[in-house]
Write a protein that binds this DNA or RNA. Structure first.
Lengths: 72, 72
DNA sequence: TACAATTGCGCTTTTAATTGCACTTTTTGT
DNA sequence: ACAAAAAGTGCAATTAAAAGCGCAATTGTA
């Protein structure tokens, strides 16, 4: 999952919940500026920052084995 | 997925591949010190750092909707 | 079109991640 | 038990994330 996909998921989920960046920032404890930078693709957030956002959005960050053998 | 779980997955995968921290650091382009701190639970890596490690280890970082309704 | 809400960006400061080096501790293998 | 390899830690420098403020640009809506 690429960087842009992560961004799209966060942004998409936020939109789905009809929450503004300002509100999400306040709820998550992440600075508004940090959230803006992340969503606009300018940032390289720390794991903690991403976790804070994910928590509020009902998202889960995970790390799993990539399926290398694409027998499709 | 908690912070410690992410660490365990990285560490476990590295061990499974029989790769030392030094080698993984070199292969991934992440500083040895950074990797050491992360694996020992002292760090808060950036997304980029985690991605570099995940790439080399054949792991994938993902963000998905949490299953809220635990009807179990 | 005009207005309001939302988002993006420049500027700045503070805080913390990244990194290397050297050393100690722990683990592993013979 | 011993030696070698691997992993953890203190120190210090560099870099970059986090954060607030204000304003410009964009988007949505009446």
């Amino acid at each position: 999952m690429h960087f842009t996909e992560l961004i799209d998921i966060v942004k998409g989920r936020r939109k789905a919940l009809k929450v503004s960046q300002e509100t999400l920032a306040a709820l998550s404890g992440v600075g508004l500026r940090t959230l803006k930078e992340f969503e606009s693709g300018k940032g390289n957030p720390t794991l903690l920052t991403l976790q804070k956002l994910a928590d509020v959005l009902g998202l889960e960050l995970c790390l799993k084995l990539k399926n290398v053998s694409h027998i499709k």
